[in-house]
Design a protein around this nucleic acid. Sequence first.
DNA 1: TAAAAAAGAATGAACGTTCATTTTTTGTCT
DNA 2: AGACAAAAAATGAACGTTCATTCTTTTTTA
Lengths: 192, 192
Amino acid sequence: MTTLTKSQIKRKALVEATIELVNNSGFHAAPMSKIAKMANVSPATIYLYFENKQDLVNKVYIEVKAAFTEYAFATYDPKMDVEKGFEIIWKRIADFKLKECEEAMFLAQCDNTPIIDEPSRQEGIKHLQPLLDLWERGRKEGRIKPLSDYILYAYAINPLSFLMIMQKRGAFQLDEDHLEEAYQSAWSSIKK
Amino acid sequence: MTTLTKSQIKRKALVEATIELVNNSGFHAAPMSKIAKMANVSPATIYLYFENKQDLVNKVYIEVKAAFTEYAFATYDPKMDVEKGFEIIWKRIADFKLKECEEAMFLAQCDNTPIIDEPSRQEGIKHLQPLLDLWERGRKEGRIKPLSDYILYAYAINPLSFLMIMQKRGAFQLDEDHLEEAYQSAWSSIKK
DNA sequence: TAAAAAAGAATGAACGTTCATTTTTTGTCT
DNA sequence: AGACAAAAAATGAACGTTCATTCTTTTTTA
């Protein structure tokens, strides 16, 4: 249990308010004044923690992405068998997307729009390296199809984002059975 | 060759300017004044064709989605064999996403953010019915896995959006070989 | 009590939208 | 066909609002 200083609490409130407002209204309808109000803070206070609105969104993106990948790889060990490693990572990602739904929605929005600047996007990608390493090993061992990382990601990981968004919009319910089906689809699309 | 009236030309210019600006800058950084300038039109003129900015974006979304699905199903015939039908549709969709890249980017952005209102989103979904019908038939004939439409879409169709965006960002090149690999992944993830 | 943090009010710029005019098109009459 | 008037389309400037950001003052912390 890490106790937060008052400063850290305020900053966290700002980050959460940003995520919620951008998720529900979009960047264009998430003014600093509303973010401040939602975080119970004066608009001016935001500028003690962030340079400007762009900086705020960039930093929220990078931090959420870091939290996402940390969660994704928390129970993974590079010494694991390729198939087992992939299953572990995939299921942790699924977990995150369903449980930390707000954060995941925010990432999806950033990944599909120009609201994040290019350096922040690059910074966010870095953290995926363990997965790319796993795939590289899998290809070398002949256990994973010799496809580019982008195609593997498109078929094995990204579908979860689509399902999470549909779930968030109430279009359908992603239960345990669905999740297992989805995992099987994911694995069968990359396994040799 | 359908000849357009002056009105239709102006409206078309507005639609294209909207797509380009929203793609490159995001909704929040696509002011009416810029859209007007890019379409060589006065800001006031936009309001002769659209009620307001929200209406403009909604209508652009619906029209682009309609063009997308019309293209997707243009060479498809419901009497086709399930596998052939899927291949035809999938490849047309891939074609569209790579050739009409701007339009496809715009759709991806709308589908992953709250910039479109709910009725317009529903309207856009309707046009996908032929694909859902094909899948329903495929399930009945035992040729397609008994998965929900959302999961089928997530694994068979949506990955193309991710690949298209990566391609647009210059991250990698989606050539003929990649495309065939992607198609095989798509089909193998839904076939029984 | 000095310094740091936070606040609310203020500021100028930029936005979406409207208004008063001008320009273009259309239809009619010669 | 050409002249003209009514209607429609289009315009640039202007409006009120809202925004991101800053400034000055107050509150909290050390």
